Computed example of a mutant assay.
Amino acid sequence: MLFSLYTNDCTSKDPSVKLLKFADDTTLIGLIQDGDESAYRQEVEQLAVWCSLNNLELNTLKTVEMIVDFRRNPPALPPLTIMNSTVAAVESFRFLGTTISQDLKWDNHIDSIVKKAQQRLYFLRQLRKFNLPQELLKQFYSAVIESVLCTSITVWFGSATKSDIRRLQRTVRTAERIIGTPLPTLQELYTSRVRKRAQKITLDPSHPRYPIFELLPSGRRFRAANTRTVRHKNSF
C-alpha cells in the first residue's frame, strides 16, 4: 500500500497512452496512429525520468515490448531504448498471470493453464485415496483447480478455439470422475462471470467500457455492441 501511494503520481499525460500499475509491475500501452510514435516514446522516456527522480530503478533486462499490428505488411519499427538499453521485442509476454500473444490468440495461455491444472489433479487423486468427504473434495477442486482454469476467463474464453475449450473441459471431466459428482462446465462459469462483470460495468459510469452498454428504448435490454470484425465481437 505504501509503495502504491509512493507511485500514485506516476501517470500518463497523453490520452493515447495508458499506464497500468499493479504494485511494482508497470505496463505502458500506446495506440499508434498514422505511424506517429512520438507520444508513446515520450511517455516511455518520462517514465524513466520519473523513476530516476524518485529513487527507483527500472530493470531494463526484465522490460519487453510487444507490437500488435494486424496489417498485411506492417512496417519495421525502430527499436525502443530505455536509458541507452535496447528493449527486447517479443511475440508474447505474461501480464499478471495471463500470457498475451501479439496475434491475440490464446493457445500459449491455455497450454499453460491446462498443464498447471493437470498437475494439481494429482493432489485431488491423493485426497480421494485418503477418503476425504466429497464436499471437501469439491471445495479443494474449486479453490485449487477451478481457480486456475478460470484465471481471467472473461478475457480469453470468448476467443478460444473449440479444440482448446475441449482440452480445458477434459480436465473438468477428469475431476468429476475423481470426485464422483457433476461440476460446473467452463461455459457456465464463463457466462456467469461475464454477466457479473457486465453488471458491474453498467453500474459504474467511471469504467472505461461503460459507454458500450446502451439501453434499448424498452429500458429492459442492452443494445448489442457494434463491431466490424469477429475478433472485436468475441472480445465482448
Rank of each mutant, 00 (worst) to 15 (best):
residue 230 V to L: 14
residue 25 D to N: 08
residue 146 E to H: 07
residue 145 I to R: 03
residue 178 I to A: 04
residue 43 E to L: 04
residue 40 Y to L: 13
residue 178 I to K: 03
residue 64 V to L: 03
residue 18 K to I: 08
residue 10 C to I: 02
residue 99 T to Q: 13
residue 9 D to L: 06
residue 203 L to H: 14
residue 227 T to C: 15
residue 116 K to H: 08
residue 138 K to N: 00
residue 123 F to E: 06
residue 172 V to C: 04
residue 12 S to A: 12
residue 116 K to I: 08
residue 87 V to K: 00
residue 120 R to Q: 15
residue 225 A to K: 10
residue 36 D to F: 09
residue 44 V to G: 07
residue 129 K to F: 03
residue 57 E to D: 07
residue 175 A to T: 02
residue 205 P to W: 10
residue 177 R to K: 13
residue 15 P to Y: 00
residue 117 A to T: 12
residue 204 D to E: 11
residue 181 T to Y: 10
residue 105 K to C: 12
residue 234 N to C: 15
residue 173 R to Q: 07
residue 42 Q to E: 08
residue 180 G to S: 04
residue 200 K to V: 02
residue 225 A to N: 10
residue 144 V to G: 03
residue 91 E to H: 14
residue 25 D to W: 00
residue 8 N to Q: 10
residue 127 L to C: 02
residue 53 L to T: 11
residue 89 A to H: 09
residue 160 A to E: 01
residue 168 L to G: 03
residue 27 T to Q: 13
residue 171 T to V: 15
residue 149 L to K: 01
residue 204 D to N: 15
residue 39 A to I: 01
residue 40 Y to W: 11
residue 91 E to S: 15
residue 32 I to T: 03
residue 14 D to C: 04
residue 102 Q to E: 12
residue 138 K to A: 12
residue 117 A to N: 02
residue 88 A to N: 06
residue 136 L to P: 02
residue 15 P to G: 00
residue 227 T to Y: 15
residue 222 F to L: 10
residue 5 L to Y: 00
residue 172 V to F: 11
residue 33 Q to W: 04
residue 12 S to H: 05
residue 163 S to A: 13
residue 57 E to Y: 08
residue 55 N to F: 13
residue 179 I to M: 06
residue 61 L to Q: 13
residue 191 T to H: 08
residue 149 L to R: 04
residue 189 L to G: 09
residue 37 E to W: 04
residue 21 K to L: 07
residue 197 R to H: 05
residue 16 S to Y: 00
residue 183 L to K: 06
residue 221 R to E: 14
residue 107 D to Q: 14
residue 91 E to C: 12
residue 157 F to H: 12
residue 11 T to I: 12
residue 108 N to I: 15
residue 31 L to M: 12
residue 223 R to P: 05
residue 149 L to C: 06
residue 113 I to Y: 04
residue 175 A to F: 01
residue 213 F to A: 09
residue 106 W to G: 01
residue 206 S to Q: 14
residue 147 S to P: 01
residue 233 K to P: 02
residue 26 T to V: 10
residue 138 K to Y: 00
residue 159 S to L: 00
residue 135 E to G: 00
residue 141 Y to R: 02
residue 126 Q to M: 07
residue 7 T to P: 01
residue 203 L to S: 14
residue 93 F to H: 07
residue 88 A to S: 11
residue 200 K to F: 04
residue 34 D to H: 15
residue 2 L to Q: 11
residue 150 C to W: 02
residue 189 L to Q: 09
residue 174 T to I: 07
residue 150 C to I: 09
residue 80 L to G: 01
residue 90 V to A: 04
residue 125 R to E: 07
residue 12 S to E: 03
